[in-house]
Design a protein around this nucleic acid. Structure first.
Lengths: 107, 107
DNA sequence: AAAACACATGAATATATGTTCATTTGTTTG
DNA sequence: CAAACAAATGAACATATATTCATGTGTTTT
């Protein structure tokens, strides 16, 4: 919003919405049942293969895989190959901290 | 996944993904730059009219209004009418707790 | 009462996200 | 090396979310 006052244009100080981009990005990355379920499992187990994750979730292989790939790309998860299996684990960064907070805050 | 063992069908215990519905719902409700900006402003100011919110945001009136209406419907915000103005404030519930946690957890 | 103000609403559109299905890649095992 | 296993990928589709534009509603001001 601009205001003119005595010939001088005063630009009222505005909050830059982009300062919330990071926060929104993190929140979006977590805001999904399947992804939360994965995170929960990995929090408990430390590391799990895709098959192991699937066994506890009732989620199609392909769908789970897409989510895992995305989460890995976003730095939420790490992946380690061992034989036929890919073992996923949480990469200890902002994402897991945030989630822990959310769980604790509860209610 | 089902396994048969000695004629008895063992249903491996699965995590009910729907237990994460609530958490995902809350996260989604917060996961947006505009909404985070509103929440931030209301956290600081306590209460603001739509115009006041807009003055600090560079956001179209209609868009902001849609978000405010949604957030109100989801119980994130309260609204109080006074004359020509609608004053919004945070309704002190799960949403604000979660957000506070996220902000504190930071990094 | 007309005009101005503050905001909400609805329809249309744009964009992002989630989901499925079929197929492919890499690895191990017989 | 063929078959089986574990998982990834890509295209197509479905659904949800965000955004814009035009208009409507209630309130105040003149």
């Amino acid at each position: 919003m601009e205001m003119e006052k005595e010939g001088v244009i005063l630009e009222r100080q505005k909050i830059d919405r982009s300062q919330f981009e990071e926060a929104a990005y993190i929140l979006k990355a977590l805001a999904n049942e399947t992804r939360l379920c994965v995170i929960m499992q990995l929090t408990q187990a430390g590391e799990k293969s895709v098959t192991e994750l699937m066994e506890q979730m009732d989620c199609e292989q392909s769908l789970l895989s897409h989510h895992l790939t995305d989460m890995r790309a976003k730095g939420i998860l790490r992946c380690r190959r061992s034989g036929k299996n890919n073992f996923y684990s949480l990469s200890d960064n902002r994402f897991t901290n945030v989630l822990k907070c959310i769980m604790e805050c509860g209610d």
